[in-house]
Design a protein around this nucleic acid. Structure first.
Ligand SMILES: [Mn+2]
Ligand SMILES: [Mn+2]
Ligand SMILES: [Zn+2]
Ligand SMILES: [Zn+2]
Lengths: 151, 151
DNA sequence: ACTCTAAATGAAAAACTTTTTCATTTAGAT
DNA sequence: ATCTAAATGAAAAAGTTTTTCATTTAGAGT
């Protein structure tokens, strides 16, 4: 069994000399518990369940730190949906369910044939990419059992 | 020789019953002329060269229409860079130069081996993706000849 | 070319989001 | 238990986006 993702985030936070405060724990836990990426305001609302007098500013500040440590990643989709999801460090991607917005992290990727083609056609030296996948999760697919709204 | 991209945008605009106004033309031309994706405010500033009393609201409204017609596409990169680039319709991607921010549109893509793997591992039915590439353009690569700032 | 009218515009205000400032609180080292 | 730098929340400021509305304009009809 793998350690829960929130433990890793907490460990990294400490390792970089940040204090583990109530507010930060509430934000991390909320992200870890969320099946789907959260927009800042939703994250704020939900995190207040864990830390009732949390301030919105602190959510911004915490996200900034988590982002700088690569513990969280912004998720953009074609629609206006735009949120943050906890992520393990290194190169990963996310698939988001169109219907229920649940998100799954994908480790690694191989799109080199495509990258090679781009390199040839454009002459660009490719240094990085950003890839988001959209689909229907198994749950939503089997029947109408998926939630219509992100949890 | 292929028709300039702004002509296509204008044609589509008309085809959908929108008027071709000075303001819209200024916005489209500015996007077409720009070597790099433009954030709303930059687009506004630059477009005023073509239509001096253009209002910022109109830029928002025009972008909304262009977006609904898929004539423009938002470009997100890992950095905070975030702008709009004119795009031909259909499935395309963009490579943006890290250094000078110039953008090139890529038609088509084949990342199916990766998509197959994701399908197997997650059980998601993949319906779409969003992919941005980042790199160094030939110009910036050859020497220090590239501009440091987006033009 | 002139007229007409629905569509589009820009200015201003309102609504919303993000950042800054600062007095108070807290984590965690000693 | 004490201490202190780091972190917090409230409030204000700055920035962004949307709404409203009186005026202008594109372009169809004549
Ligand atoms: Mn990848
Ligand atoms: Mn593609
Ligand atoms: Zn689902
Ligand atoms: Zn370049």
């Amino acid at each position: 069994m793998t350690a829960p993702i929130q433990d890793f985030a907490v460990e990294q936070l400490r390792k970089h000399g940040y204090k583990l405060t109530q507010a930060r724990w509430a934000v991390i836990l909320t992200l870890a518990e969320s099946p789907s990426p959260l927009a800042i305001n939703d994250l704020y609302q939900q995190a207040r369940a864990h830390a009732p007098d949390l301030g919105l500013v602190t959510v911004y500040r915490t996200l900034e730190i988590l982002d700088s440590l690569k513990l969280v990643r912004p998720v953009h989709l074609m629609e206006d949906y735009h949120g943050y999801a906890l992520a393990t460090p290194g190169h990963t991607h996310h698939v988001v369910c169109q219907r229920c917005k649940s998100v799954v992290e994908i480790e690694g990727c191989d799109i080199s044939p495509f990258l090679d083609r781009v390199r040839e056609e454009t002459g660009f030296h490719i240094t990085g990419h950003w890839l988001e996948l959209e689909g229907i999760c198994p749950n939503c697919r089997t029947k109408d059992s998926g939630r219509a709204e992100p949890a």
